[in-house]
Structure formats: C-alpha cells, structure tokens
C-alpha cells in the first residue's frame, strides 16, 4: 500500500527529470505541456499540473487504503489511530464551523485539505505544484461556488433572487459582483500564495547564484562553480513557503469553503419551509 502511495511521487519526479528543459538564467514559467488534445472551444493541453494532480489523487487513495485496511474495533494498529484522528478532526471542524445539517461535508473538507496540501507539498520534491496553476485552483473555487449557490437555492429560486436586494434593492449589482468575487478571490488567494512563494524562491536562488559567482568566482577549477551561498537560505525559504504556507493555504481554503457555504445557507428559513411542507403533506 505504501509502495502504491510513493510510486506516483517517483513517477512524477522521473517525468520532471526527463522532460525539464535546460534553464538559462532566471526563468519563471507555467507548467510544462506534455501534449495537446484538440477539443471544441479550446485545445486541452495536458500539462505537468494535470499529471501531478492526478498523481496526488492516486497517492491519497493509496494512503487511505493503507490507513484503513485491517480496521479493528480495539484499534491495535497505529495507522488506524491516524485514520480515526483524521475523521474525527474533520468532523469536529465541520461541526464547529458549520451547523449539524452539514455533517456530510466532512469528506469534502478533508478532500480539499488533502488535495491542496499534497499539491503544494509536491514542490518539496522539486516537482511542479499544481496549486500554482490558476486552472486547478480555479476549478476548486468554481466547485465551491456551485456548492454555495446550491445551498442558497435550497429555499427556492425566488428566495435566492430576493437575497440580492438585501439591504436596499438598488445595491443588487454590487451584491452580484461580491457573489462572483468569492470564487475569484478564493482562487487567486491560493494561487497567488503558492506562486509568490515559488517566484521568491527562484529569485533568491538566482540572486544567490550571482552573488556566489561574484564572491567565489576567483576560486580555481570546479570550486568556482559550487554555489556556496545557496546551501542554507533556500532551505529555510522552502520550509516557510512550501511546508508552512502550503499547509496554511490548504487550511484556509477549507475554512473559507465551510464559512461561505454555511453563511450562505439560510438554515432557519429552510427548516421552517420544510416543516411547513411536511405539515402540508400530512394533511
């Protein structure tokens, strides 16, 4: 099982090593395009980010299988405790941030967290993190937007339309804009955080390389080519930008999802409506 979890990472690293073109100087670019599939409206380029996110999904699937195989009531295995901890944590998180009505949201929140965190952490292995591709994060944000709208629609389209003219009716355009801005800001927040980390890492690395060339360039032979100054600082930056920021952004994305969905859902109205409907059905 663990082999199945590690294998996609190895595949990703091999792909990265095989297909990365030789870089000259500073180069900050998007994902590599492996090949392009012609599609209506727009061609679909199969890029590093697509492949990497698929690999991440396979990794998570095998991790799940590893954690949950051989579950027993008495919890003899340590990995079972991990699985239980994950389940209980996400359930309590959902319960505290949303209401009891959303108890089925725990797997969704867990999947957002896992996908986002693992995608961001791929950069620790030198792979292209899919979260620094706007399309990937945008897809998640649009799914969250669909969920928000779905739960707002629960009370009927009329109630939904009425919610736009909430304080005064002529503010409706602003409400529409703020509604649309939600997924965009979520996508750009996640994307911008990961990408800015990557950009700063590249800038610092190249800057340190130049500095090393200036200071230690006089050393004879291959000694002059060793980037002495690149040894410590990029690792610290990587710990902050890849590890901390990646996990934090995953957490924030999941929290914002929960808060937006829970705050958009008019629970009291919905429950009152459902009670009324049940009463009418009983008659």
């Amino acid at each position: 099982m663990l082999i199945g979890a590690v294998a996609p990472l190895v595949v990703g690293i091999i792909l990265k090593v095989l297909f990365t073109p030789e870089k000259v100087g500073i180069s900050i670019s998007g994902a590599l395009i492996y090949f392009t599939i012609p599609m209506p409206l727009q061609n679909l380029p199969i890029t590093e980010s697509q492949v990497n996110s698929a690999l991440v999904i396979v990794t998570i699937l095998f991790l799940c299988l590893y954690f949950t195989h051989g579950l027993t009531v008495k919890a003899e295995l340590k990995r079972q405790l991990v699985a239980e901890w994950i389940v209980k944590q996400t359930q309590s998180l959902v319960k505290t941030n949303m209401s009891d009505y959303f108890s089925g949201f725990a797997p969704f929140v867990a999947s957002i967290m896992a996908l986002s965190a693992f995608s961001s952490l791929l950069s620790l292995f030198g792979m292209y993190p899919p979260t620094s591709d706007i399309n990937i994060v945008g897809g998640w944000a649009i799914l969250v937007f669909i969920l928000i709208t779905y739960y707002k629609m629960k009370c009927g389209p009329l109630h939904y339309a009425k919610s736009f003219g909430d304080p005064v009716p002529f503010l409706a355009p602003l409400n529409v804009i703020s509604e649309v801005a939600t997924p965009i800001s979520m996508a750009f927040r996640h994307y911008g955080n990961v990408l800015s980390g990557a950009v700063i890492s590249v800038l610092v690395a190249t800057g340190l390389q130049g500095l090393t060339n200036i200071i230690f360039g006089w050393l004879p032979g291959f000694l002059g080519n060793i980037p002495f100054l690149q040894i410590g600082l990029p690792a610290i930056l990587s710990v902050y930008f890849d590890l901390f920021s990646g996990c934090l952004q995953a957490f924030i994305f999941a929290m914002l999802t929960m808060l937006y969905v829970a705050s958009g859902f008019p629970e009291e109205d919905y429950l009152a409506r459902r009670a009324k409907k049940l009463a009418r059905l009983k008659k």
Binding site: S29, G30, L32, S111, L115, N135, I136, G139
Partner: peptide, 22 residues
C-alpha cells in the same frame, strides 16, 4: 518542450480539476 504561460486560463483544465476534486 513548450511550457504554459504563467497565467493561462483554460476551460477544459478547470473542468478537469473540478472533476478531480469531486
């Protein structure tokens, strides 16, 4: 090997990542 622009919006990629999350 070509690489994408740093910001490039692609409808199909968005749909694929949406499906991935689901």
């Amino acid at each position: 090997m070509q690489s994408l622009d740093i910001i490039s919006v692609n409808l199909w990629q968005i749909l694929i990542s949406l499906a991935n999350l689901t």
